[in-house]
Design a protein around this nucleic acid. Structure first.
Length: 158
DNA sequence: GGCCCCCCTG
DNA sequence: CAGGGGGGCC
């Protein structure tokens, strides 16, 4: 399986269905096991992502940020660098293609704001308070570029 | 049953 | 990241 490629896909999709994943790994002969593994990878990717989001959102609250709208994420933001290090360790996208999709920055910003609002309003004390946030973020997936289907995708990363 | 997702571990 | 368990949905 192609872990690096899967991680790069995360910049576009946080909740890809197994059907979509299969389309973007045309060179893989899927079976129950590797399909479950790929799906599991994204689950793990999301966990890392949300852990970081909660961490930075709480940091914003402690720093006295008043409104969620005051939270801004740019390529220079620490959170952005942390995420890039995790999903794009060798800056494959930058060197090979123009850039990380602009919408990813937006998604991160939205996620931070949602966590911030939940924490600030004390909803983080409720049972499964993250569920509603997950639902919102799940609607922000973008189409994965066609070039991810290229048989030479991984080679082009080198 | 089968498929997903989340949670918690190691 | 992989394993295993719990719970929801069809």
């Amino acid at each position: 399986m192609h872990l690096r490629k899967a991680k790069l896909m995360f910049f576009w999709v946080r909740y890809p269905s197994s059907a979509v994943l299969k389309m973007y790994f045309p060179d893989i002969k899927f079976n129950k096991n590797n399909t479950a593994q790929l799906v599991k990878w994204f689950s793990n990717f999301r966990e890392f992502y949300y852990i970081q989001m909660e961490k930075y959102a709480r940091q914003a609250v402690s720093e006295g940020v008043k409104n969620a709208e005051d939270i801004h994420v740019s390529a220079d933001s620490e959170i952005y660098r942390v995420l890039n290090l995790h999903y794009n360790r060798n800056n494959h996208i930058e060197v090979w293609r123009p850039q990380v999709p602009p919408n990813f920055r937006f998604v991160v910003e939205q996620t931070l704001r949602e966590f911030f609002k939940a924490i600030q309003s004390g909803k983080d004390t409720e049972q499964s308070w993250k569920k509603s946030i997950y639902k919102i973020i799940s609607r922000l997936d973008d189409p994965v570029p066609e070039y991810f289907k290229s048989p030479n995708f991984l080679e082009q990363l080198e």
